[in-house]
């Protein structure tokens, strides 16, 4: 026996938005069908499919859902007058003691600057272990300001005449590799993958993510390989992406 669309949907514990997403129909249209608009045959077929019912189970004209009556608000009760309260005196909480990481960082900075821990404690005026979080932050900033700006390891390692092209280097993203794999997938390329243990896999690239590659091997099996265990891979001749240029 045919039922109203909204009744079936609610029985299947689906929202209108979910039904719209799964059926490919607009949410407004589904609302209209639930309100009684004549359901077309192709749309009834789509809705029946995603609701896992027969087409005939859905009424062409759904009866609108009865409006829910709002419960009457409870009668207003007069609020009792608030007794005049004295404002509590706000006590300033003690700052928490410095974290071990902050103290270690301070010691490291001091060592980097050639300052002994005892000298640092003399300068601060108290033992490092008695610092609070804000005090430790203050002293970290103070010591950091004393570190010469060109003493980072990368700066030291830069060769003479080095021109940074940092803006063009996608350090922090996997853009080049992602482009390479995207082109390989679009070209239906066969990928040969060499794993850490020397094992090799070859197959059609079906998909990839930040941590995995999925191939369909020659024996029609799908294999998902963790990138952590991959040493290198390359496309087979004839299906060669342009090299992930951006």
């Amino acid at each position: 026996m045919a039922e109203d669309l909204w009744k079936i949907r609610e029985r299947k514990q689906m929202s209108v938005a979910q039904l719209a997403l799964r059926s490919g129909l607009k949410q407004d249209l589904i609302d209209e069908y639930e309100e009684g608009r004549l359901l077309t045959t192709p749309h009834r077929a789509k809705l029946a499919k995603v609701l896992y019912v027969n087409e005939d189970d859905i009424k062409r004209h759904s009866a609108p859902r009865p409006k829910r009556e709002k419960p009457a608000p409870p009668p207003a009760q007069p609020k009792p007058a608030k007794p005049a309260e004295e404002k509590p005196v706000e006590s300033v909480p003690e700052p928490p003691p410095a974290r071990q990481g902050q103290i270690d960082f301070l010691k490291g900075l001091a060592r980097h600057l050639g300052v002994l821990p005892a000298q640092l404690e003399d300068e601060i005026g108290q033992p490092l272990g008695e610092l609070s979080v804000p005090e430790a932050k203050h002293w970290i900033r103070t010591l950091q300001a004393r570190v010469p700006p060109n003493l980072t390891s990368l700066d030291k390692a830069k060769p003479e005449g080095y021109r940074s092209k940092r803006a063009h280097l996608p350090e922090g993203i996997d853009l080049f590799e992602a482009n390479y794999l995207l082109e390989a997938r679009q070209a239906s390329a066969t990928l040969t993958v060499k794993m850490f243990n020397g094992e090799a896999f070859s197959g059609l690239l079906l998909g990839f993510g930040p941590y995995t590659l999925t191939l369909r091997t020659g024996d029609n099996h799908e294999v998902t390989l963790s990138k952590l265990a991959i040493a290198y891979y390359q496309c087979e001749r004839g299906a060669r992406p342009a090299g992930g240029a951006i």
């Binding site: 996997d174 590799e177 040493a231 390359q234 992406p241």
Partner: peptide, 26 residues
Amino acid sequence: PVWWDLAAIGLQPIGEEDLVVVQRHA
């Protein structure tokens, strides 16, 4: 090297036509 990013290096091996994508952690 043809490119590099966070995870991999695109390497053009000498005498070979196809690019090899080497995982940096390898």
